[in-house]
Design a protein around this nucleic acid. Structure first.
Length: 306
DNA sequence: AACACGACCAACCGCCCAGGT
DNA sequence: TACCTGGGCGGTTGGTCGTGT
């Protein structure tokens, strides 16, 4: 049954005849719906709408309840961990928003869908490649997702820094703990879905603490909407990736501009054009590459080509 | 201050499927 | 078995708000 009519016992009524309301819900409507469901429970939405005296379609009531009024709906920014989960699960299931939402407690399919469309697809558009293309998926999997893990770890490290209660050694330990915590969170997913490539590939040496990185503590868009400057990044990459400078190796002094990974991508992908942090707007705040992620990327893609 | 633009998100739309009759 | 209905899903739209000019 569509929105144009509602069939009762044996009469087809139009929207006009039953004066259906549309658009934003009022507080009174919300309270009516909440109270009715508290008393009678969910389900039979069309009947519910009529019985509750709401001049809404059953669909509208269901949507309002599931996406907004339900007590366990979680609101606020999508966290870094949630972003990582969304990217991973979408790479496996595609636009199965409700299925993805099952693994993000309190998040609705609508919210995840909105996140994907506003954040992820935006970047695909900026990169002038299709969001479903292999190139874009590779960029997500081998560039963005590892970076998200780094930021999750960095955020945890920063919180420790705030408490002024760590040493370099403890820092490394804390990062390891965070990785394990992340694995635990991934444990929400059936084990077969999280293979070694997923979490294992992100378990990189993350003992550094980019002190000038405001992104580490943010839970908002991790792809390039946050404010930073190129000079920040230059400074960032001019120091060893490892915070333990005594043990720094030449490989720790990674200089993004000196490396070309265009050959690593199959199908002649122009890597520069795919670099989400090399956009025309100059927003490169998400340029969090490190040596091991690059090596992993290279190795993985070479394996793909074998 | 006013306008334009983009980001975000709640809500709607239309299709599909499962279950009941 | 065909039809009807409710419910679920992914896609789309439009309003609101923040930001830049």
């Amino acid at each position: 049954m569509d929105e144009k009519g509602r069939r009762t016992s044996n009469t087809l009524l139009t929207d006009d005849e039953i004066d259906l309301r549309r658009g934003p819900w009022t507080v009174d409507e919300d309270l009516t719906l909440i109270n009715y469901i508290a008393t009678h429970g969910e389900g039979r939405w069309n009947t519910l709408a009529l019985s509750a005296g709401l001049k809404r379609t059953g669909k509208s009531c269901r949507l309002r309840w599931l996406n907004y009024l339900r007590p366990d709906v979680r609101r606020g920014n999508i966290t870094l961990e949630e972003q990582l989960l969304i990217l991973e699960l979408h790479s496996r299931w595609g636009n199965r928003w409700s299925k993805i939402a099952q693994y993000l407690p309190g998040r609705t399919d609508n919210e995840i869908k909105n996140y994907w469309r506003t954040r992820v697809q935006k970047h695909a558009k900026q990169l002038k490649c299709d969001v479903n293309s292999k190139q874009f998926k590779d960029a997500m999997r081998y560039l963005w997702m590892p970076r998200l893990v780094e930021r999750i770890q960095a955020a945890a490290t920063a919180s420790v820094t705030t408490n002024n209660a760590y040493t370099s050694e403890n820092n490394i330990k804390n990062n390891q703990i965070e990785v394990h915590n992340l694995k635990d969170k991934m444990g929400l997913i059936e084990p077969s879905l999280i293979n070694n490539d997923f979490v294992g590939s992100y378990v990189m040496q993350q003992s550094h603490t980019p002190e000038n990185s405001s992104t580490a503590l943010s839970s908002s868009d991790s792809f390039g909407t946050q404010v930073s400057t190129k000079s920040d990044l230059t400074d960032y990459y001019s120091v060893p990736v490892s915070s333990n400078n005594n043990n720094a190796t030449p490989a720790d002094y990674y200089q993004p501009s000196q490396m070309s990974y265009s050959n690593c991508f199959p199908q002649g992908l122009d890597f520069q054009s795919l670099d989400p942090w090399n956009l025309q707007n100059g927003d490169s705040s998400d340029n969090f590459w490190n040596v091991e992620s690059m090596l992993f990327l290279e190795q993985h893609l070479m394996n793909d080509n074998m």
